[in-house]
Amino acid sequence: MRFDIITLFPELFAPFLVSGVTRRAYASGQVDVRLWNPRDYAEGNYRRIDDRPFGGGPGMVMMAEPLARCLAAIRADHAAAAAPDAASEAVPVVLFSPIGQALDHAGVSGWAAGPGAILLCGRYEGIDQRFIDAHVDVQLSLGDFVLSGGEIPAMALIDAVARLQPGVLGDEGSHQLDSFNPALDGLLDCPHYTRPEAWAGRAVPAPLLSGHHAEIERWRREQRLVLTARHRPDLIDAARAQGLLSRADEAVVARQAGLL
């Protein structure tokens, strides 16, 4: 898959692409990331890419024309890289914005199974709405807060997608037990422990030291249920609605709620 990122600050991505376990995905080309600076497609000696908003107000607005030229260059590069007999399928243009759909595990899984996207990182007060209306296909959000630009959301999406690619994580089954995984049950993950067995007066829970696999799995399941019921009861409701909770699970949830 290929992600093209339109950003005024491509240098922000340099350490991101060579750090951590997901660097394997970028180094191998499983996730091909290409950076495009719209300033390179602006006119004039100053390569201006923003201007004051019509109607007045604070801040500056990113201009439509440099973005349109940048997008055209990306589309042309896609066409040149495609195999001669390949079907032409334009990847979507994604804008990170407050009105976008909140990104979740199901959404990330969808992107991870697709061909990629063109990620548009806005800056300043925003982007000329005419460009959005003409070219943006999808809008996404990380949550109800405002960032100074779209670069961090772009990194978040790419990182989440990259770790789902085969061979990227050290253990092929690692992401199967992730929190929010709808293929499992959508619940939160359980707590994890490592050496030493006792630290600062706190011991590792006995079931994890028992060597009894069924007991360990039962403990982990109960912990996932307890944590989810305590912190994200909405996920319990969703799992229940899908018939993913057993009678034993419901008993654990009931005890957590003080009903048993």
Rank of each mutant, 00 (worst) to 15 (best):
D4E: 10
I5T: 13
T7C: 00
F9A: 01
F9W: 06
L12E: 04
T22E: 10
R24L: 07
S28I: 04
V33G: 01
V33M: 00
L35G: 01
P38G: 04
P38H: 03
R39Q: 10
A42V: 09
E43A: 15
R48H: 14
D50E: 02
P53E: 03
G56I: 00
G59M: 07
V61D: 03
E65Y: 01
C70A: 12
H78R: 10
A83M: 06
D85F: 00
A90W: 03
G100Y: 13
G100W: 09
A102L: 07
D104M: 06
G107Q: 13
W111H: 11
I118P: 02
G122W: 01
Y124A: 00
D128R: 05
Q129E: 15
H135M: 04
H135E: 15
H135C: 14
D137I: 07
S141L: 01
S141D: 00
D144I: 08
A154P: 12
L157H: 09
I158N: 12
A160I: 08
L164A: 12
Q165M: 06
Q165C: 09
P166S: 05
V168G: 02
V168M: 08
V168P: 06
E172Q: 08
Q176L: 15
Q176P: 02
D178P: 03
S179P: 03
F180Q: 03
T194F: 11
A198W: 02
W199E: 03
G201Q: 01
A203L: 14
A203K: 14
P205G: 08
A206F: 01
A214D: 15
Q223D: 09
R224K: 12
L227W: 08
A229Q: 15
I236F: 12
A239V: 02
Q242N: 11
G243L: 09
L244A: 11
A248I: 00
A248R: 06
E250A: 06
V252Q: 05
V252C: 08
R255A: 09
Q256N: 10
G258S: 08
L260M: 00
